[in-house]
Nucleic acid binder design. Structure first.
Lengths: 362, 362
DNA sequence: GTGAAAGCGCTAACAA
DNA sequence: TTGTTAGCGCTTTCAC
């Protein structure tokens, strides 16, 4: 066979084997790139057959399959998923909404989402909502405009308007990192209340009797703190007459952890354990304690949240609440893909739980 | 005017004002949602006019504008950008390729990209290439299939095949976080060599005379280290007869920083300063030093890379190389948007430089 | 197993 | 300023 680039022939539509990829009329519209039509022509089949060869290879004879693959190879054809998505109403795009990319908290989830989706031929679109709910509505509009096959929310959607839009759009939705009796659709999360209770009980069992919490001012941290303080109260671990918590702005930082410990010790100098709403905060507490020569865990127990990569390598190693962010991402991806492929979703609500990793700091 | 939901009329095509949004023939294809056609019909204009009202409001009379907006409001219409993108060859989608979402290094860039793009109506698609170049090619194919209006690479594209594909696709490309004399297209970065040199000189000026480096085994860190060691050699800061560097796997962690310091002190017990290829590594070194009662900066100077949020809050605060990741993202977004909107791009190659933030650790 | 026809929902091009 | 027409590149539907 001769080479590919053969001088274009303008008149004859050429039923012969000679493919005139760049010849023929080509309007001023369009990208001017190789299309499925070109591939089909080169392979000597109808466009729809080429489409089948690429999407459902089993539905096509081996001979045709080979010819089409050769043509793809020769032309360097790359499918246009905008066109494919429009025609099939399946964009193979999944949108993820995170409060912020910068925080380390959802990274594992986003990473695992990206990977799980990619493995099935889906891609992730990232949207940042900020911790304020204001931008969320505008974001939702642009997301729905892409007709994604699914939306993954980190956190649950509280805005009634947002819930309505999402519901109206008919797009599968997975809310994550939380539990609610009234999910929009599907849910992969865990109970923040149970964590607060478990941490209080954990500290009590370890002999702590005067606890405080340092937390970011986001809603989930607040709920953990509330349950923590209630349980601590019941167990008699709360000092009388003062707030048991110190609130720092979200997103939390190492610096606010350091400041947090100073404040906490001002409020309640006899504090013997702090529950931090993030590992970063806990790291700050550890560093401040070291700077002030406060012995951890001897005089002060510290417990974090998130089990970030560095937690186990700290000195002392950090006791913390572990959330399997990777599992959240993987399960969320699986749920959405199941839906997208029209499979029945067995359990649309999953509690993936949490665990307290007991290390040296508490 | 009466309400919107009027019982559907099946037969008459209705040239009257009565809009039968759900009546008429609706094939089994498509999403079955509200389309621009429905909006146009309700507003009593042609679809293209409705399109103009939404995309170029200035090109339409105020009366029509109002009618279309009312119709959008009433119907809850959300544009279909797949269709729009297909028709206009402008997807308003930008793809970002990062080695990993988990590392903190590119977060600022991704965040700033997302925000800058969102402000102009573009969205970000995230792809993970891993630190190995293997997955990059497959990733590229799926990216190009979406016909994004731009691709932002963190790092430069080394694979010749990847370069070729990108080039052939005609999609605007911005390579970042590096400098090269042969960019594919546009570039926003800085010189890793200059950083290595600057850090060596910085340490020399501060009286350090026996330096080492702990670095991740990625290509850019390697180039910083090479320039660092060469300069250190010229300045007589290298101990004779042993490697000046200790390499840890990428992505770098706090734990590998701790291990790194132990190894470095094994190799060269008199080391008086270490240059770490990331702040996380540096944090590990700081923690290991503290655990071993090694005084920083007195006996050991530590300098990091990245100026992550926590660097200034450490104890001692961390001297580090600051890269303005936010600027990289913003400039990259601006370059791509300029291209997408058909504007001329003044300087397609930008060196945004770096700075050494002198704090207490060195 | 293969193909022809008819769209998916939108916008570029040209006309009025 | 507004409308008509004809696609963008692909896939569904239905027929062979």
């Amino acid at each position: 066979m001769s080479g590919v680039k053969i001088p274009a022939m303008d008149t004859k539509p050429s039923t012969s084997k000679i493919a005139t990829i760049n010849g023929e009329k080509r309007s001023r519209r369009g990208s001017g790139g190789i299309t499925l039509r070109d591939v089909a022509k080169l392979a000597g089949v109808a466009p729809i057959t080429a489409s089948r060869a690429l999407n459902t290879p089993d539905a096509v004879s081996p001979a045709v399959l080979q010819k089409v693959r050769d043509a793809v190879e020769k032309t360097g054809y790359v499918p246009n998923m905008l066109a494919g998505g429009l025609a099939s109403s399946r964009s193979r795009l999944v949108a993820a909404v995170v409060p912020t990319v910068v925080g380390p908290v959802f990274q594992e989830t986003v990473q695992s989402l990206t990977e799980s989706l990619a493995r099935s031929g889906y891609q992730l679109m990232l949207g940042q909502s900020g911790y304020a709910n204001s931008r969320e509505d505008a974001l939702l509009e642009t997301i729905i405009a892409r007709r994604p096959d699914g939306v993954v929310l980190t956190g649950i959607m509280r805005s009634p308007d947002g819930r309505r839009r999402l519901l109206a759009s008919g797009i599968p939705v997975v809310e994550t990192w939380d539990l609610t009796p009234t999910p929009i659709d599907m849910l992969v999360g865990f109970s923040h209340e149970k964590i607060g209770i478990a941490v209080a009980e954990f500290l009590h069992a370890r002999g702590r009797r005067n606890v405080m919490t340092i937390r970011g001012n986001d809603e989930r941290a607040q709920r953990r703190a509330k349950a923590f303080l209630e349980t601590a109260g019941k167990l008699g671990m709360l000092a009388q007459g003062q707030a048991g918590e110190y609130v720092v702005p979200a997103p939390t930082t190492l610096g606010s952890g350091r400041r947090g410990l100073r404040e906490v010790l001002d409020i309640n100098p006899d504090t013997d354990a702090v529950f931090c709403s993030s590992d970063l905060l806990a790291l700050g507490v550890l560093i401040e304690a070291q700077a002030r020569d406060i012995d951890v865990p001897q005089r002060l127990g510290v417990i974090g949240f998130g089990d970030l990569g560095f937690a186990e390598d700290l000195h002392p190693s950090l006791t913390t609440v572990r959330i399997d962010g990777t599992a959240i991402g993987a399960v969320a991806a699986a749920l959405i893909i199941d839906r997208a492929e029209g499979r029945a979703v067995a359990e649309p609500v999953r509690d993936i739980g949490f665990s307290i990793i007991a290390r040296d700091s508490a």
